[in-house]
């Protein structure tokens, strides 16, 4: 059956898909992420539809700060790379490296989240509260939803790392690390569209 491991042969090249359980988790994660695309599409569409509904409040071009967004983008892109590195370490059965890359990913994500909170506080001080206008509501909903995903990902990764701090790479936790990295890349993809469609088009368009 798929529910056992042959320890003598060594870690399989794709440990995340070595068991039926792992295969199920892998496919389930992809299906979930595919569903998330349509959910984010609704938030993007709502934002783009309501972008001009500023109701006398601040407009996108008045409030967005490119340097801050650039730093945040670099942080998240780099964290995407570090989680790729973590997965390669996992495939090569290098547990310490896996842990190191994962913790770097978490740290980068946490800094990103810190900047996002700082950004929101800054905007509120400039008169863009959640209830100010339809533009404000839809901006906070979209970027806030992404932030909530980042937060969830951070908690997830931390729990995973703490739980498996001494476990080594097993056929039970390999799919979990892999699925987390898929989720993390997906968050990065969403951010690419947020900085393009929200920030850059809000300023340059």
């Amino acid at each position: 059956m798929a529910n056992s491991a042959d320890l003598s042969k060594g870690l399989p090249a794709n440990p995340e898909k070595a068991t039926l359980d792992g295969k199920n988790k892998f496919l389930g994660a992809w299906v979930f992420l595919a569903g998330e695309t349509t959910m984010f599409a609704v938030f993007f569409g709502t934002y783009l539809g309501l972008q001009s509904g500023t109701a006398g409040g601040p407009e996108p071009s008045e409030i967005f700060q490119l340097p801050l967004v650039f730093i945040m983008t670099m942080l998240l892109l780099t964290s995407s790379l570090t989680s790729v590195m973590a997965i390669y370490a996992m495939k090569k059965n290098q547990f310490q490296k896996l842990k190191r890359w994962m913790w770097i990913t978490v740290a980068l994500g946490a800094v990103f989240l810190g900047f996002e909170i700082y950004e929101f506080v800054e905007y509120v001080e400039h008169g863009l509260g959640f209830t100010t206008s339809a533009f404000a509501s839809s901006f906070y909903a979209l970027v806030g939803l992404h932030g909530a995903h980042v937060l969830f990902g951070l908690l997830w990764a931390t729990l995973l790392l703490v739980r498996n701090r001494n476990a080594g790479i097993t056929l039970t936790n390999a799919p979990k690390f892999y699925v987390f990295s898929l989720y993390w890349h997906f968050i990065d993809v969403v951010w690419v569209f947020i900085f393009s469609a929200v920030y850059l088009m809000g300023i340059g368009g």
Binding site: G53, F130, S133
Partner: peptide, 30 residues
């Protein structure tokens, strides 16, 4: 289809409970 529904319901909830302006035409909503 249920993910857009979840998104829509979330927007309606934000509108009704947390005074969002998504669907209030006077505040730029639609």
């Amino acid at each position: 289809a249920f993910t857009p529904l979840a998104a829509g319901l979330a927007l309606l909830m934000l509108d009704r409970i947390f005074d969002g302006q998504f669907f209030i035409p006077g505040e730029g909503g639609n």
